[in-house]
């Protein structure tokens, strides 16, 4: 048997590796993955919208009621809370989500309000502090009631849960891929959220007209946010892409446009109830 030079001596291409450009392969894979994820997200979104329409308010209250009451601080309602509840009750006559919405006031300085599944609304003290008239406050409360009526709190929850499950099942948690898709799904969620916010603004404006027979003071909250520096113009444009709410200026503008189109009246604003001043 004769020994001859082995494979090391040949100057041929290495057969054990592919010779395509890794960057090109990466780009193709990334684009297809994004396309696939977008498709799945849209389809699941439609599915959730159908499912949410199928759950009636009574069922929602029964399912999430326990969670919602677990959030109750247990203390008897203060004067301020009672006064807020009264305002909500009055607006509910114009905008009924299908169940009694309960309001909680929390001592938090950032101006904000949330709609939680099961018919609980959280309002921060910071929000009350920003308000000068009852109409301005009523708009924010009606906006949250609008979320309840549109079932947005359920849609948002459903999408969040589905997206999280999808990304952990399909992409795994250690592949590093979640880092690629997290910003993408965040942007998708934000766009969905901005649409829902705009719609809640529209519904809220209608409720204000119904309750006060005019819509003056509707944009009070946004104007207050602007003076407080929340809608700062110095933010780069891409921030808007990831923001879950439309920016303050465009919300004020769209409120003006909506009330002009619907022919809503303007009138005198009422002062805040005494307990809230």
């Amino acid at each position: 048997m004769k020994l001859k030079p082995g494979i090391e001596s040949l100057d041929t291409d290495n057969v054990n590796v592919s010779h395509t450009s890794p960057l090109r392969e990466f780009a193709i894979l990334l684009v297809s993955a994004f396309a696939l994820l977008a498709l799945v997200y849209v389809l699941l979104g439609l599915l959730i919208d159908r499912a949410v329409d199928w759950i009636d308010p009574a069922t929602e209250k029964a399912v999430f009621g326990q969670l919602s009451s677990a959030l109750d601080d247990g203390t008897p309602p203060t004067n301020a809370e009672a006064s807020l509840q009264d305002l909500v009750n009055r607006i509910q006559q114009c905008l009924d989500p299908g169940y009694q919405v309960e309001v909680d006031l929390v001592a938090e300085s950032a101006p904000n309000a949330f709609a939680l599944p099961g018919g609980r609304m959280i309002v921060t003290q910071g929000l009350i502090d920003q308000m000068e008239s009852e109409n301005g406050l009523a708009f924010v409360l009606a906006h949250e009631l609008g979320h309840f009526a549109n079932r947005d709190h359920l849609r948002g929850l459903g999408r969040g849960v589905v997206l999280a499950a999808l990304s952990s099942i399909v992409l795994g948690t250690d592949s590093g891929l979640d880092a690629v898709f997290a910003p993408a799904s965040m942007a998708g969620q934000a766009r969905f959220s901005r649409e829902r916010e705009s719609d809640a603004d529209r519904v809220s404006l209608g409720a204000l007209q119904c309750h006060y027979q005019h819509v003056s003071g509707a944009d009070a909250f946004f104007r207050a946010l602007k003076t407080a520096g929340y809608g700062d113009e110095s933010e780069p444009a891409y921030v808007h892409f990831f923001a879950s709410h439309p920016d303050v200026d465009s919300r004020i503008a769209s409120l003006k446009r909506l009330s002009r189109e619907a022919g809503y009246a303007s009138g005198r604003e009422r002062p805040l109830p005494e307990a809230l001043q």
Binding site: K2, L3, K4, P5, G6, I7, E8, N16, I169, V170
Partner: peptide
């Protein structure tokens, strides 16, 4: 009659995510 030494072949392959699920 003659001998060239070691030759080898290697692969790393996967199935799509559906199969993994």
């Amino acid at each position: 009659s003659s001998c060239f030494g070691v030759v080898s072949g290697s692969t790393v392959r996967t199935k799509h995510a559906g199969r993994d699920i």
